[in-house]
Computed example of a mutant assay.
Amino acid sequence: MFRTASVAKQFSRTMSSKVIPVISKNAPPAAASYSHAIRANGFVYVSGQIPYTPDGKPVEGDIKAKADQVLKNALAIVEDSNSKLENIVKVNIFLKDMGNFAKFNEVYSTYFNAHKPARSCVAVAELPLGVDLETPGGKLVAQHLKKKATRPKCGDCGVALPGIATLRPRAYASISKTHKTVSRAYGGSRCANCVKERIVRAFLIEEQKVVKKVLKEAAAKDKSKK
């Protein structure tokens, strides 16, 4: 397979991004060797959930009770991954009996009412531990909420510095020095008003020193005349 330089560069950057496993205390323990979720490339990939409580006990009752527990487990993992229901983009559902489709949807619609992500629902012959359903069925994708970037602030008054890019700290390491400051004294750490105040203050201090020196010299001359 051939790739252009730009595609190869993008592929390399994607593969080298950080992969962070998520283990939630608000979902049942993993039944095998897997994480509750994986955060990568700005997305959260949630493992399939079955109708078990966070303390590892199976849920008894009809398909509605089981569906409710499964969705609670999945959404708890999403929240523990620093995301939320409104960011979910795709849900896969496995049902052992399609006769439960309507009842499952009754519960599902109470969670996904205003926000309706893309969805697939299929019937399967068997599910882990003999349960009736599993969701997200191997793939519930939720966008990861990244922290908002903030512009550097003036060290004196705390006002955001104009003319400087608004980026996360790691991003500042990859930009040129000209984008981290502006062309004036204290350009990257103080705003124009505070720089002006510093200049005026420095001028007044120097002027005060000159006045003291002149007064001292005048006093010395008067003393010598006497």
Score class of each variant (00 low, 15 high):
T4W: 09
T4Y: 09
A5C: 03
A5M: 02
V7T: 01
V7L: 11
K9E: 08
F11K: 09
S12N: 10
T14W: 11
S16N: 12
S17A: 11
P21F: 02
I23E: 15
S24G: 06
A27D: 03
P28G: 05
A31Q: 11
A32T: 15
A32W: 14
S33Y: 00
H36D: 14
A37L: 01
R39P: 00
G42S: 01
F43V: 13
F43D: 13
Y45F: 15
G48N: 07
Q49R: 14
I50R: 15
P51D: 02
Y52D: 03
Y52P: 08
T53A: 11
D55Y: 06
G56W: 07
K57V: 03
E60P: 04
E60H: 12
G61Q: 08
D62R: 04
I63K: 05
A67T: 15
D68E: 14
N73W: 01
A74C: 13
L75K: 00
A76K: 03
A76I: 12
I77L: 04
N82L: 10
S83K: 00
S83Q: 00
L85G: 05
N87F: 04
D97I: 12
M98K: 13
N100K: 05
F101D: 12
K103A: 15
E106I: 09
Y108M: 09
T110K: 13
Y111S: 05
A114F: 12
P117N: 01
A118I: 03
A123S: 12
L127D: 06
D132S: 10
G138V: 08
A142E: 01
K146Y: 00
K148L: 13
K148C: 10
A149R: 07
P152C: 03
K153L: 08
K153F: 00
D156M: 05
L161A: 07
P162L: 04
P169D: 02
T178S: 14
K180M: 13
K180T: 14
T181D: 13
T181Y: 01
V182T: 13
V182P: 04
S183G: 06
S183E: 13
R184T: 10
A185G: 07
S189F: 04
C194S: 09
R198Q: 12
I199F: 08
A202K: 12
L204H: 09
K213N: 08
L215V: 06
K216T: 11
K216Y: 07
E217R: 12
A218V: 09
A219W: 00
K221N: 02
K221C: 02
D222W: 07
S224M: 08
K226H: 06
